[in-house]
Write a protein that binds this DNA or RNA. Sequence first.
DNA 1: CCAGCGATCGCCT
DNA 2: GGCGATCGCTGGC
Length: 218
Amino acid sequence: MSDVLEREFFDRSVEEVAPALLGCVLSRTTSEGEVAVRLTEVEAYAGPLDAASHAFRGRTARNSVMFGPPGHAYVYFTYGMHFCVNLVCGPEGMSSGVLLRAGEPVTGVELARERRPRSSVRDLARGPARLCQALAIDRELDGADVCSDGALRILAGSPVDPASIHRGPRTGVSGAKDTPWRFWIDGEPSVSPYRPHAPKRRATLLGEVDVSGRSAGR
DNA sequence: CCAGCGATCGCCT
DNA sequence: GGCGATCGCTGGC
């Protein structure tokens, strides 16, 4: 109960929900205890309208949670070793979601450090896979309702100064690369660095110059 | 600080 | 069979 966000919060366009999630708190409870982070960086993915979205090519076993009701977690496994978590937005069937990319630890820092012993506190939840590691989020939480009292909850946080919310292109995606649907709280140390998508290197032709981008985060 | 690279496997073409 | 909504280590400047 307490200060869990209402499901209606998620029942709007993903472009509205994403910046509104900044400053909110994601809390994860296991038998080991609670770890919570204040969200500092997110990305919006707009389902079938969005070439970068996992839902772009329709419903599959993996992404089916995105096609369900808002306020649930879509957890996927990638690169053979990492998990990332999205919160599903509305309306139901739209298959849009917000990827949670980074957060500032606010509760259970010691437990999070046990899970990521090589990490500085600043890096504990800096990046979508690190965030999942610090909070022990895996595919068992795929479909979890974050708007009720459960193992994974989203809580209201203290208000964020609107002027500190910045936006830019999303990180690491190959489709719709210029759509500015990455949102972050400016000046937050926990915001992950911007990494433009780098295509797999193939043999270069005739002195072709590699013009891949460089760091421009924050 | 930055670029390069390997790890490792589920999903989709 | 190819390639990720990534991370962490290495080696260079």
